[in-house]
Every structure is written in C-alpha cells, then in structure tokens.
Design a protein around this nucleic acid. Structure first.
Lengths: 337, 337
DNA sequence: GATGATAACATGAACGTTCATGGAAGGAAG
DNA sequence: CTTCCTTCCATGAACGTTCATGTTATCATC
C-alpha cells in the first residue's frame, strides 16, 4: 500500500480511490460538494495509508502556513518560558505550530528573528520586543505581517498589544504593604524594562502618596548588579525600610537572599512583594507574596487578537490590559513599629 | 520599486535586473556559474528591494525546510525551558528555525506534536519523550524522519541520543555527602522519570555501598505529592538521615521548604544535593549543591548529531553521554555525628 | 580553422497542494 | 419536453522556488 520512497501524497490516495487529487483534497478538508460516502471512503483510505498533509505545499498555494512566530528575550527567564509554554499550548489546540525565536535581548539577533519569521512565511508574529525603538519592530511594521506586542506597550497605540495592568500591580503591591502597617517602603528593579518598570513604580508611588506617606519614605533603585543591590538593600535597612516591592519574583528572591547574607530575615525584618507570581507555576513552595497576572488568559487573548488581525488586516489596533491580583503567601507580616 | 501587493519574489528581482529567476536564485546563493559582477549587482538590487527568501517555496522544491522540531514535556519546567533556549540559540546560529512543541507529558498530545512536526516537513526532530513505550516514538521511527533523543536513553541503542551521565551524577552526589561525613543518606524523586531516576539512584546506591554503608542507611522514595513527601521527609529525619540527594534542583528546593515547615533547616539539619544546576542559569542566588551538566554542550551535540543524521540517514545510531560535575554551593555541611 | 573546453546564462519542468472554473448527471418545475 | 437548478466531481492553472539540462559566446589547442 505504501509508496516505495518518500511520503504519501494526495496523488497516491487519488490513485488508490479512483478519484482526482482535488477530490481527495476536498474530502480531507470536509468541504461541501462531496458526497458523504465518497468523503468517508477517501478519509478511510488516507488514514489507512498513513497520510499526513504536506503543509509546505499547502502553504505555498494557500498563502497560509498555520504557523506563528513567537519572539521573546530568553526562555532562561521563567516568566517568558511559562508564557511561551502557554502560547504554544493554545496554538497547538487551534492547529497552529509555533516557531520560538529568542533575541537574547540583543537588537541584532532580534532582527534576525524577525527575518526568520518573515522568510518562514509565518501567518503572524507575537513579540515581546527588547525595546521600543527596536529596529526589528520597524522591519515588522514595514513587512505588513500581522503581529501583536506582548507584555509591552508601544507608544502611540498604533500596534495591537496584550499587557497586564502594571500600574494596578504596583498599586496593589504598595497597598498590601501599607495595609500591613508599613510606612517606609522601597521598590527595586534590576533591569530597567522601560515601560513595565515605570508603570509599576508609578502605581506603587501613587498608593504611597494616597496613604499620605512622605516622599522621603518612598525609595527606588535600579541596581546594575548584585553588589550594587546588596549595598542598596543594606542602606535601606539602615534607613528603616520595612516593606519592599520587587519588579519580579526572581529579583525578589535575589533580594531576599542578599538580605539573608547580611543576617536579615524575610518577613521578620523585611516584608516583600514580588510580581508575576511565577513561583505558583514553578511549584516552588517558597512563599512569596506576588502580583498575579493570568498568563493563560494573556496567551489566549494574544493568539485571539493575532488571529483576528490575520483575518481582518485593516481593523484598528486594539490594546488589551489584563487585570492583576495580589497573591498573599507569607513573605509579608504586620509592621511592628 | 516595491510591488503593489505581497512580497518581493525572485521574478521581481529578475525583471529589475534583466536576468532570469534562475540566475537570481543562483546569485543569491553565491553559487558558481555566475560572474562576479552579475552576482554582486543582483545581490545589491535584492537588498535594495528588501527581498526575503520564501522558504515555503524553497522547501517545496528542495525538500529541505531548514526547520527542526523540538518536542519536550513542558517549558514550565525550567530545565526544559533552558534546554529549549539553548537549542534555539544554536539552531538560529546555524540558520535553522525551531518549532517547539510541548507534550505536557501526555502521550496523546505528544503524538499530535510528532504529527505537527511531520506535516510541517521538519528536517529533523529533537525529542525528550514522555516515556519509552511512547506511541509517538513509534510514529517517529516509522516516519523515517531524522531524530535525536534528548535527556533520555532508549533501550537497545537503536536511536541517536544525547544524555548526561546520570549514573555518574548520582555517584558524585553521594560521594560528596559521604566525604562530608554523612552516614545515613536518602534519595527523593517526585516524578519517576524511568531512565534518569533509575540511573541516578544506581550511581548513588553504588557509592554508598562502596563506602561501606549498610543498606539500612540508604533510603529511597518516590512520593506522589507534597503531602506524601512531607511525611516521608519527617520520617527520614526521625530515622537520623543527614544527607539528601534530590532528583533535581526544583524538587530539592521543595524538599528544603517542606523541611523548614517542620522547623528543620538546611544545611543545619540536613545536607542537600540537587541535580541539573538550574539555579546557576536562573540566577537565583540561593545556594544549592547540584550536579551540573553543560546544557550548552548538550544542545550543540544534539543539533550536530541531528544534522549528521540528516546528511547521512543510514549511519549507525550514536549515543553521546556527557560528563557531569559537582557544583558545591552551601546546602551541605560536615556531619556533626 | 575546425575541435573541444569552459564560463555564464536561459529554458522548462517539477515539488504537492489549493483555487477558480467547467461540466455531466439527475431531479424538479414549468 | 424543455429549462433550470442542484449535486458531485474533473480539469487546468497557479503558488515561488530549485533542479536538470540546453544554449550561446569566448577562448585556447593542435
């Protein structure tokens, strides 16, 4: 039954069933214009012969590859790894393949990634760009390929994007620390991811001001490395800071460890709130309060938006901002002072 | 210069330069049979027009897609996320795209993933299968597509594979604990990944026996969930276990946290050695002794092996076993007893 | 100056699908 | 019986590239 060499093609099935390739194609796609029995007979033979559709040939003719590209910084970052996993899961469910491309936060590599997506004729691109003035973004916009920005806002609202409510997250984090009685707070962010960091701090700052804290009790730092962070944290402890908001969970963890190196303990000496709630996904049971964004929701929304863009290329850009919530898990305690 | 609609094709460049598509194709591939000046002229015009090769059309004709599929359980597991990142990085360097497919350790989804890889005409597949009797593996073998097993041995050495030395890792972990004076040891593995778990325990057991420990001082458990793990750990502490070898770092962390819930501390009450050394990649500074395998080496070897299989489909299967080493970071201390 | 070799391109077909039509058979309506 | 409409399938072309094979010039060789 099977051919001598290579894979089974529509022609092989056509020969075996006595119809033309076109009829086989339509039958396998369950199109109308095919009698029920012919359709079932053809599908039966196809299954029996172990046919798998050649998407390359299919794509060349139809112009659709049923493949999307996901461009992110690095999957060594658990946040992006989880997001990629969820994106891939949703895509597979819808019959899409996902080509994952990591830029390593390097603009040149990011451009190569975009070119790879274009040359592979991806139906669309999901991208968490390195920065807003990324040349890769320009290439993407100029190419005409559908795309959706992830986890980052673009300026001017000219792009489709899905993002969590960074501002609200910062507000919630601060509000939790304040509710626990803390009156001397700080935020730390190791890498300055322009948009997210700024928005999170703005929300954090706002709740502090709303609670009547003086600006002298609202600290902020963007240390370049662990040594700098160490010095910064030590200084904050000396100044009587009792509540810390960290840009993300990984960095919260780092901060806690750095503090423990100095003999401090969390939450005894410092209450800490993180962001992303990745520890929930990672099943690391170490309890860290965090701001949770439903990444599965983010993944599904992103793919839905991309698909709508694919089917309606000229619709106006949409921005989806996902709500966040506080997950309280024990890295915070009531302030004694 | 640009076309009205759609992308630039070889035909467009041919029209612009006054040669045929074939000549353009050869020029862009730097083939011989093209004069130097024509070649450079064509490449210049192509660059100017913003041409990107349509790999779909290219693949249909040539039979090569320059795309590989990577099938793994889940990228929520940092170990696989890191591996995927490194694989992708190496592939991009060599001009390959990577379609990443996660099986969620579900055989049915894994089969869908293999079918996706086949239908997309991937040049080859890297797979860390759910299990050895996975039906997806049978489909893969029957399809004739080049593939390499990752992180898992197959029985019978009939497949190409790249794996780290699990046995040696277990031996090293045990040897470190013994060198620190521990005489009552245990190994814990939450999920029983058949091959790796068994090999790691065999190595661990061997070094214990070599050191003259009685079998009553070599404990082992495969708890199904955290409650069971909790009971198990508590029991071991009661029995005087002072050294623990964990299947992987994530689980080591879980174990440590479970112990801390009971008032125990690491390394004060229990010395712990993990596996995979993912904390090094994740920049989580929490010090955990671990067995390190060079994942970048693993990624490069895997891709090299896959490419050699692609170019020489009938060569005998190869097995590469990568050496491991102990990374000592402070979750162990000398035994007081 | 006839022969052959080589360089530099052109020509036509092919990859496996899908799209746009075409057209035969059968039934219903007038 | 004609006309018209379905239903069901066939025919031919097309997607953009690459492969195998032709076809000229150009130049050296004897």
């Amino acid at each position: 039954m099977a051919k001598e060499k290579g894979r089974i093609t529509l022609q092989d099935i056509a020969n075996a069933t006595g119809v033309t390739v076109n009829t086989v194609s339509r039958a396998l796609k369950n199109k109308d214009d095919i009698s029920r029995e012919t359709c079932e007979r053809i599908q039966g033979v196809a299954r029996e012969m172990g046919y798998v559709r050649n998407y390359i040939a299919s794509s060349l003719r139809s112009g659709r590859t049923k493949t999307i590209a996901m461009i992110t910084g690095s999957m060594i970052n658990p946040y992006y790894a989880i997001l990629c996993d969820l994106i891939q899961r949703e895509a597979l469910r819808l019959g899409y393949g996902v080509m994952i491309l990591c830029s390593q936060d390097d603009p040149e590599t990011e451009t190569r990634a975009v070119e790879m997506a274009l040359s592979r004729q991806a139906d669309g691109v999901l991208i968490a760009p390195c920065s807003f003035d990324s040349p890769a973004l320009d290439t993407l916009r100029a190419s005409g390929i559908p795309y959706v920005l992830l986890s980052r806002f673009a300026e001017g609202e000219r792009d489709d994007c899905v993002v969590c409510n960074d501002w609200q997250g910062g507000y919630l984090a601060g509000s939790h620390l304040i509710a626990e009685g803390h009156k001397n707070l700080a935020m730390i962010s190791f890498h300055h991811v322009v948009y997210s960091t700024r928005k999170r701090f703005e929300g954090f700052q706002q709740v502090c001001l709303d609670a009547g804290l003086p600006t002298s009790a609202i600290h902020y730092a963007e240390p370049e490395n662990e040594e700098e962070a160490q010095r910064c944290l030590t200084e904050w402890m000396r100044q009587g800071v009792t509540g810390l908001f960290s840009f993300c969970d990984v960095e919260a963890w780092t901060a806690i460890t750095l503090l423990e190196n100095q003999g401090f303990q969390c939450p005894r000496d410092l209450s800490v709130v993180g962001f992303d709630n990745i520890l929930g996904y990672l099943h690391f049971p170490k309890p860290i309060c965090s701001i949770n964004c439903d990444l599965q929701e983010e993944a599904q929304q992103a793919i839905a938006m991309l698909r709508s863009r694919i089917h309606e290329p000229s619709r106006p850009p949409q921005q989806v901002v996902l709500p966040v919530s506080l997950v309280c898990r024990g890295s915070c305690k009531k302030c004694d002072a």
